[in-house]
């Protein structure tokens, strides 16, 4: 046997001397648990809230955007609405005090009225 062969055999013997590992007792149970988890693609997947959260996220974002952009009554009235309020408002009319006139419409009417007075 050559020196090279002896060295090769010596290294092989050292590697072969590594004792077998101690496998945890739950190894088989964990394998089965992972197999079962991967197999849950049917109705079990529907119970996974993370799936629904991801799938509904675009819809939720769209609804939020609509809610922000949709005009409501509390928003500043458009020009035709202001003009309409001005036409019906006369400072001397007591009934006007009873009407539910938008604050902006009153201000507009007041300013236009004071301008005419000058």
């Amino acid at each position: 046997m050559t020196e090279h062969d002896e060295e090769q055999d010596a290294v092989a013997a050292i590697l072969a001397s590594v004792p077998p590992p101690r496998v945890t007792p739950a190894f088989l149970a964990r394998v089965n648990a992972r197999i079962d988890a991967d197999a849950g693609t049917g109705w079990l997947a529907l119970a996974d809230f993370r799936v629904w959260t991801l799938r509904l996220a675009p819809l939720a974002a769209a609804l939020a955007l609509i809610a922000v952009l949709w005009p409501t009554g509390g928003v500043e009235p458009s020009a035709p609405a202001v003009a309409s309020a001005q036409q019906t408002f006369t400072p001397a009319s007591a009934a006007d005090w009873q009407q539910d006139v938008a604050a902006n419409a009153m201000l507009e009417a007041a300013l236009s009225g004071s301008a005419h007075a000058r």
Partner: peptide, 28 residues
């Protein structure tokens, strides 16, 4: 085969802590 496969994954990962986890993945 679990002992052999765990031994193999340990040898290939230089005794990494997740060697047994990788062996489980192999069986899955």
């Amino acid at each position: 085969h679990q002992v052999a496969i765990v031994a193999l994954t340990r040898a290939l990962t230089s005794g990494a802590a997740d060697a047994e986890d990788l062996a489980q993945e192999a069986f899955v």
